[in-house]
């Protein structure tokens, strides 16, 4: 359960202060498949970064399963992310020198898991995202959709509580984007992992169980729907 309480985040952009979030509050339950939508500059990425413990807020609080993640120090945040959070990026952010397999397995390596377990879990997740037989390929030899599948596998391989995806389909054509969303949804259902993704794409919004609309740093609507 993620609890966001009165979160304010200002950015210094030169002389002026940009108010990215102006006191946002919301709750996301375990296993939800949530889309945070809004035009660019509405604060959706900032909200995602704050929940993902990679940004610091100016006031307010975020609790994940009752833990005040916003008051953690840098080291604690790093450890927390390592153990609990998965990330999917718009630009995939794969390591180009590593194979598909290695791009996924390194997440487990930094958790210091035994080699056998790393192998078993990596192979399993790659199979699940549909990259069987492509384990040894470098990202440059894969399509955008395939690369994003690696990213999904990388985010899920450690069984995180929450996966945060910032515009996961923005770099993909709509058909591939849909496949990726379907995959994410499937994973959400299978592992009961909370998925929070930002988007400004109507098709993606339609896919979500819950749609939170942000505008100018405020939530203007929060609706649950059944697909």
């Amino acid at each position: 359960m993620i609890k966001v309480e009165q979160v304010v985040r200002d950015y210094q952009a030169g002389e002026t202060v940009v108010k990215a979030l102006k006191g946002v509050s919301l709750e996301i339950g375990d296993g939800e498949f949530v889309s945070i939508a809004g035009p660019s500059g509405s604060g959706k990425t900032t909200l995602l970064n704050l929940i993902g413990c990679i940004d610091a807020l100016d006031s307010g609080e975020i609790l994940i399963d009752g833990v005040k993640v916003t008051s953690m120090d840098k080291k604690e945040k790093t450890t927390y992310r390592r153990n609990n959070l998965g990330f999917i990026f718009q630009t995939y952010n794969l390591i180009p020198v590593l194979s598909a397999y290695e791009n996924v397995s390194f997440v487990l390596s930094i958790l210091n898991l035994p080699e056998a377990e790393i192998h078993q879990r990596t192979m399993a997740i790659l199979r699940e995202v549909g990259l069987q037989g492509m384990e040894d390929r470098r990202p440059s030899r894969l399509s955008g959709g395939q690369q994003q599948r690696i990213a999904i596998a990388r985010a899920l391989v450690k069984n995180p509580r929450i996966v945060l995806a910032d515009e996961p389909t923005a770099n993909l054509d709509s058909k591939t984007g849909q496949e990726i969303l379907k995959l994410m949804k499937a994973m959400n259902e299978k592992y009961h992992t909370t998925f929070i993704f930002s988007t400004h794409d109507q098709m993606v919004m339609d896919f979500a169980d819950r749609l939170i609309l942000l505008h100018d740093g405020n939530i203007i609507s929060d609706e649950r729907r059944s697909v």
Partner: peptide, 16 residues
């Protein structure tokens, strides 16, 4: 740098 940001987001320590 982006790669580096990703690794940090994924919980890799700065010293590593």
């Amino acid at each position: 740098i982006r790669e580096l940001g990703m690794m940090r987001a994924l919980g890799m320590t700065d010293s590593a």
